[in-house]
């Protein structure tokens, strides 16, 4: 099946411009990657409100903190690796400890960074961000969700981390979709097993559920774009229905969505949870799709694994 895939990064860039037109307090910072993150669109229209900080992520993050102190709403973009890794302590000690209105929108998270290889593939960013108090963490799955999440962050006070997918993605939501910070979405109802995903793996998970249903397995699919604060209720209710949960993410299985779901269920309704994603290892070079297959997060690979789990 050929589906139209849309550039989520372009959607991010366009949304920033739109926000910049409405609100003169929106400012954007990038660390020499504005062509990749698409903040260049904002730079073109609002050069006085765009700051290219050069290859200096620590300085960028704390400069954003200073801008927020003067009432600006900074969007900070670079690759997820450098935003959340290099500048983690700036985010923790300056932005989040002071609870500043800084929005970190990072691209190139996960294995789908592709050819650049392990040094650039952030497999730990969700884990790093969600462990910091005051931080909200969102992993949108398609163009529409990205746009809405970015707009929501711009209008809500406090630090946000939004992981913008590097790869082009098909629409997974219909036109009635509305982003809700406190709600996970039941994408498909089912009774045998619950599949929980977000970001680039959500479409794979939905396809997997179709393949499973052809094999007579009824999978419920839940989209959890907001990893923190997580919607416990939807997850618990689904677990009560199926008694078997699998999480699927383009991230290390340590500390991300899978861990978040385990935390919710082990404290509230313990059922067996299997975390699928990147195991405790580094990635490597290759095409995004090849890597997803190699690390087992395409719909086909997921289907194989889940059938194996159920048997």
């Amino acid at each position: 099946m050929v589906r139209e895939c849309k550039s989520v990064r372009s959607a991010y860039g366009k949304t920033l411009v739109e926000l910049g037109r409405i609100n003169s307090n929106i400012v954007v910072l990038d660390a020499d990657l504005s062509c990749s993150t698409q903040t260049q669109m904002f730079a073109k229209e609002f050069p006085e409100r765009f700051f290219d900080m050069g290859i200096a992520e620590q300085d960028m993050m704390t400069t954003a903190a200073g801008l927020a102190c003067t009432g600006k709403i900074p969007f900070v973009s670079t690759f997820a690796m450098f935003a959340t890794g290099r500048a983690w302590e700036q985010i923790r000690n300056t932005i989040c400890y002071s609870n500043l209105n800084v929005k970190i929108a990072a691209t190139h998270g996960g294995i789908t960074v592709g050819e650049d290889g392990a040094s650039h593939q952030a497999l730990e960013d969700i884990s790093l961000m969600r462990s910091i108090p005051n931080m909200t963490v969102i992993v949108p799955a398609d163009e529409k969700e990205t746009i809405e999440a970015v707009k929501y962050a711009a209008c809500s006070y406090g630090p946000f981390y939004i992981r913008i997918a590097r790869t082009n993605l098909p629409d997974v939501y219909d036109t009635s979709y509305k982003f809700n910070i406190s709600k996970a979405l039941i994408m498909k109802e089912g009774t045998d097993i619950t599949l929980i995903s977000n970001g680039e793996t959500l479409v794979e998970t939905l396809d997997c559920a179709k393949m499973l249903s052809e094999k007579g397995i009824s999978a419920e699919v839940i989209s959890v774009p907001v990893v923190k604060p997580i919607d416990k209720e939807t997850i618990i209710n689904s677990a009560k229905k199926t008694n078997r949960v699998v999480t699927i993410e383009n991230h290390s299985i340590i500390g991300g969505l899978g861990s978040s779901v385990c935390e919710v269920l082990s404290e509230n309704y313990p059922v067996k949870v299997t975390r699928l994603g990147i195991n405790d290892e580094f990635g490597q070079s290759g095409k995004a799709k090849e890597l997803m297959e190699y690390y087992g997060i395409t719909s086909e690979k997921l289907t194989e694994k889940i059938i194996g789990l159920i048997k």
């Binding site: 700051f51 200073g66 700036q90």
Partner: peptide, 20 residues
């Protein structure tokens, strides 16, 4: 104005404030 303590961050904060 802002929490500090972890060294090396104040001057960047000042740059952000100055730009704002």
């Amino acid at each position: 104005e802002i929490s500090t303590g972890s060294l090396g961050q104040g001057l960047s904060i000042a740059c952000g404030m100055a730009l704002g």
